[in-house]
């Protein structure tokens, strides 16, 4: 049990001369939800993006230290394979400007495993997993851009599930949604953790408290404190953590 699915070892990251992550030792366990909280610019999204190497797309990034997925250094994993295993959901819902169906089969097409029958089966299974199937089963040819923001974000999660990741990174997935939609996405996350390892970055402390099993608090590029969510929220050890969760700053 409790094996480290995600881990960093003395991780330092620089954007040019800006030191964005300071010597971060982080780990996340399988089949659970780990939340990263902290004020804007504290490096929590940067840390999240290390695990599927999205930081590679930014110019002038330097890394030292180790990043491990299932105890294997990500340097040793092919980047395409890594991103297949470590999927990501972004802050703003970002479906492709295609139909719902085209969005759903995109991942299947690029992995060359698409046959009509299999596609339809996967689309149905993944849309069911995010609770969209009943709403959309007759509207698969509808443009994905015409959906509500919540449905778009669900669609993006479903689209991610089609490539069968093991780990899902969520980068403030509810910040563009209203409170009710937020609650429903949170319910979805709790369902998904049965099968996936989830790492979520959130601005919303209540959200971290509601959904996560473990919480890490970050400040100015440093992982200040990490522990079970109940511990962090009820008896934080570091006074900076306490200051943040009681609303003294942030």
């Amino acid at each position: 049990m409790n094996n480290n699915v995600l881990r960093t070892d003395h991780l330092n990251l620089y954007y040019g001369t800006f030191h964005a992550l300071l010597d971060v030792d982080f780990h996340a366990f399988g089949k659970s939800i780990t939340a990263l909280i902290g004020p804007s610019g504290c490096g929590k999204s940067t840390l999240l993006r290390c695990f599927n190497r999205m930081n590679d797309l930014v110019d002038d990034v330097k890394l030292t230290g180790g990043i491990f997925v299932k105890e294997k250094s990500i340097e040793e994993v092919d980047i395409i394979e890594l991103r297949k295993r470590v999927g990501m959901v972004f802050q703003r819902p970002n479906p492709f400007p295609f139909s719902v169906y085209e969005n759903m089969v995109y991942g299947l097409k690029i992995h060359g495993i698409s046959s009509r029958r299999r596609n339809e089966e996967v689309v149905e299974r993944c849309l069911k997993a995010v609770g969209l199937w009943d709403d959309l089963k007759d509207k698969l040819s509808l443009s994905a851009l015409s959906l509500s923001e919540e449905m778009k974000q669900r669609l993006c999660i479903a689209r991610l599930l089609t490539v069968e990741p093991e780990i899902i990174l969520l980068d403030e997935p509810c910040s563009a949604l209203d409170p009710i939609a937020t609650l429903r996405i949170e319910e979805l996350m709790i369902e998904l953790k049965q099968n996936y390892t989830i790492l979520i970055v959130t601005h919303n402390m209540q959200q971290a408290a509601r959904v996560s099993d473990f919480t890490g608090f970050m400040l100015l590029g440093e992982l200040v404190e990490f522990g079970s969510t109940s511990e962090i929220f009820t008896s934080p050890k570091d006074e900076r953590t306490e200051g943040y969760i009681t609303g003294r700053f942030g």
Partner: peptide, 23 residues
Amino acid sequence: NLRIVSYSLSATKWETVTKVVLP
């Protein structure tokens, strides 16, 4: 961001260009 999503779904650059950008 459409390109970034495509990469995050483990597409290569060329797949991203032909299947997302050009359409």
